[in-house]
């Protein structure tokens, strides 16, 4: 009797235990609102996930609401598929939804990522789910949430511009590092999540949908395909991505991907490796276009 009632009220029992179907529907509605108003932060009733808040509970809700049995899911943390957190999340979702685990960016339908956008350009039909620790780009400028929302509503962003101006005055350049603020479709200022500046241009005019989900702050926002995403900077101060002259990946020799330092044989942080492990592996096996001749856009220039 109880089982029958349950079914009547909530539909067929979901696959065991992370998330119920009604909640998934609510998250999908929030994502659709976000896609309809690019860059606008949609409040949603963020649920507790079997991971700590801050370990991707927002991204996980988005991913769980999107995957089906026939989906191929890639999860990366800091660019790596094999990181402990990424592996655990991927296994968790696969066990729940019966989807297939994937590491090749090209084959994935859904890519959940913490703080990176893959080097492989995304294609039509893919969804990139970014985990967001802090959703509000104005949080460091005004604390009052009503004022933050008023500023967004009226596109009153001069305080953000003054902050960039002051940064240049005091430091000679804009020191915003990861999570560089962007203007979406000429309307809303948005945080792209703490991706490096290297990844910010990939969000512009992307073929894929980008969903950004903040579980602790209970907000979802999105960038639909072919949307203008422009890093905030002055016309005469070009946006700069990370660059370290002469540095190249120790494994694949790449100079045109985002590389991070790792300890060399002498124990100092002298060696560099690609942060996107999938792309690096493909480079080494000849399954990705070779790096353009050194000196091109290698680790630098302006984007």
């Amino acid at each position: 009797m109880t089982a029958q009632l349950t079914t009547e009220l909530a539909g067929p029992p979901p696959s065991p235990g992370i998330f119920d179907e009604l909640s998934k529907r609510e998250i999908r509605r929030a994502m659709l609102s976000g896609i309809a108003i690019p860059g606008y932060q949609v409040p949603f009733g963020s649920r507790e996930m079997p991971v700590a808040r801050g370990w991707g509970s927002g991204g996980l809700q988005a991913t769980l609401s999107l995957v089906g049995e026939d989906s191929r899911l890639k999860v990366i943390d800091q660019g790596e598929d094999a990181g402990v957190n990424a592996s655990n999340l991927r296994r968790l979702v696969a066990a729940h939804a019966g989807c297939t685990e994937e590491t090749d960016t090209r084959s994935a339908d859904i890519i959940q990522s913490r703080h990176r956008i893959p080097e492989q350009p995304l294609r039509d039909g893919q969804v990139l789910v970014l985990q967001v620790p802090g959703a509000e780009p104005l949080a460091g400028i005004v604390r009052d949430m009503d004022e933050q929302r008023r500023m967004h509503a009226e596109a009153d962003y001069s305080k953000m511009w003054v902050r960039l101006y002051e940064d240049i005055v005091h430091n000679g350049l804009i020191t915003e590092a990861a999570g560089y603020p962007v203007l979406v479709e000429g309307r809303y200022i948005m945080t792209p999540s703490p991706i490096p500046r290297w990844d910010v241009p990939k969000m512009n005019d992307s073929e894929a949908i980008t969903v950004l989900s903040a579980g602790r702050e209970k907000r979802i926002f999105a960038v639909p395909p072919h949307t203008r995403v422009v890093p905030l900077t002055f016309d005469d101060r070009p946006f700069e991505v990370e660059r370290t002259p002469g540095a190249a990946c120790r494994l694949c020799g790449s100079q045109d991907t985002y590389i991070v330092q790792e300890p060399g044989p002498d124990g100092t942080f002298s060696a560099w490796v690609c942060s996107d492990t999938d792309f690096c592996r493909r480079r080494r096996t000849g399954d990705a276009p070779a790096a353009p001749a050194a000196g091109g856009t290698a680790q630098g220039g302006t984007a």
Binding site: Y157, W161, V169, D235
Partner: peptide, 16 residues
């Protein structure tokens, strides 16, 4: 300078 930059950027000035 930043105090003056505020109304200027609000009015759309984008050259540092």
């Amino acid at each position: 300078g930043g105090n003056i930059a505020d109304p200027l950027t609000a009015a759309g000035w984008r050259s540092y």
